[in-house]
Design a protein around this nucleic acid. Structure first.
Lengths: 269, 269
DNA sequence: AATTAATGTGTAATTTGCACACAATATTTA
DNA sequence: TAAATATTGTGTGCAAATTACACATTAATT
């Protein structure tokens, strides 16, 4: 779903204001294909997913959009994501294309049948056709990310993956598939650099792995394994964390880390 | 590319015969999206890929087609593959969607500009629009497969992967990505059951792995590893294979094998 | 100064990976 | 008929990785 899409539908719902400046000629888009982004962030405790909300209808959805005719699909995904989060150069990868006939049947837009003014007709016709959607998985640092809800007051919020509301269309399936992808390809994705803050404790890093893999890991073995790979730089200790030994802070040697990710590192076997 | 597409273009090239009975209303297809199948077979020596050839133009391409409006994308892939190979219930999985603007620029159809009769105009207009294409990887037993070239005398042939000709559009990239997918997911695909004949020797099974992984494996370790997993059933020996000890023949315990493939087995680490 | 709770590291048992050796055996050949 | 041949089936030893703990360390609290 792109801004255009949302705004248009909001217009349909409200039927008050004029948002014609947001209208784009749908013939500039590749028909039949949309892009949906599963943007994952980590708050050092839980994995979160970036969702858009249409407040009036309590309707949640993935940020998405359409592909311009002169635009590569990957470019379109990058553009759409930047429009939504303000983040540039995120880790972003296509993971699956969803093409069931009924993929929009589960949770539909409410009240689409209400009608509206003339300039929207082409767009409505475009939107109501059948679409397949390519899912893109993005890993971003939740702290560098400025989700920007658009002019129409819909919200753009991080929601914990285990507390997801019912989503539009098949977006729930798309998120599920993205999480499976993340789990099964964890060794080949830069989960650390993409999801962790600049400095972090080993415990926090381990929590990331545990949340992705959905199982607990042995603390000692995790620490030794990660240290032996030599992509972590140790810094000063983090004090005042409680009545116990203070942990070191770590950061990434990015060159070394990216090298290793190419070949596949980590904690699946 | 589907029969329709090929035949249509042959018509354009020849401009002699009438194949109007093959014409389909393009509005019955989802616009902007095609499917291309990378069908892989194993002849006990090499991996082969099923290609279609337009003889007159020495043009090779993947079997492909379009998605009917009332058809799931996976269904469409199954249908297209069955039309091409006669095989039902193959292993068939979407692996990537190719969406570059220029994906049809490298190797184009020759001489599309020649014109033609009226009933084709809609179809031509449909075909010349921009398409993205979802790649499906299929693993089939080359011996149970009856490739059926269509009425128009194009060929449908198994070609060894290391001897591929230049392919239409970006089909070379699609094959390459499919092979990477096969290699990296070998432990999660039923490569054995899908690609091997009913009975086979351990040597032949090992060759399959070596061709997929593109490296040689230690014979003794391969044999022990596979036997320990207990999905192979040992049969009588295969005699008259030369001046040496005769190898056993093996087949799959399909239940056990499929169980293991679910969890991931095999020879990547 | 003792207690507490979490961190950093060590160790032993087990499993797996890897390289190679050796024995077994259909067929060929002398 | 017996030796030679080439390939299969299996064993063995060493290195590396995995796993499950144990133990020592230490910043803050009591």
């Amino acid at each position: 779903m792109c801004k255009l899409h949302i705004n248009l539908y909001l217009y349909i719902m409200d039927n008050k204001k004029q948002y014609t400046e947001l209208l784009v000629d749908p013939s500039s888009f590749l028909p039949g294909v949309s892009i949906d982004c599963v943007v994952i962030g980590f708050d050092l405790t839980e994995l979160n997913i970036l969702l858009l909300q249409l407040k009036k209808h309590d309707l949640w959805m993935l940020p998405g959009g359409f592909i311009h005719l002169n635009e590569d699909m990957d470019q379109a995904a990058t553009r759409i994501l930047e429009e939504r989060t303000g983040i540039k150069l995120p880790y972003l990868k296509q993971f699956h294309t969803f093409g069931d006939v009924n993929r929009r049947e589960n949770t539909k837009f409410p009240g689409v049948n209400h009608m509206l003014g003339e300039p929207f007709e082409k767009m409505i016709a475009f939107l109501e056709k059948r679409f397949i959607s390519s899912g893109y998985l993005s890993l971003v640092d939740i702290r560098n990310c400025a989700p920007t809800p658009d002019a129409m007051s819909d919200e753009c919020t991080w929601i914990p993956v285990n507390l997801l509301p019912v989503l539009l269309y098949d977006h729930g399936d798309i998120v599920k598939k993205a999480m499976e992808q993340l789990r099964s390809r964890i060794n080949y994705m830069p989960v650390g650099i993409s999801l962790m803050p600049e400095k972090f404790t080993m415990k926090e890093f381990q929590t990331l792995y545990e949340k992705i893999l959905n199982k607990s890991l042995d603390r000692g073995n995790f620490q030794k394994k990660m240290l032996k790979l030599e992509f972590l730089v140790r810094h000063e200790k983090k004090l005042s964390g409680g009545a116990h030994k203070a942990p070191y802070l770590y950061s990434f040697n990015k060159n070394r880390y990216n090298e290793l990710v190419e070949k596949g590192i980590g904690y699946i076997n």
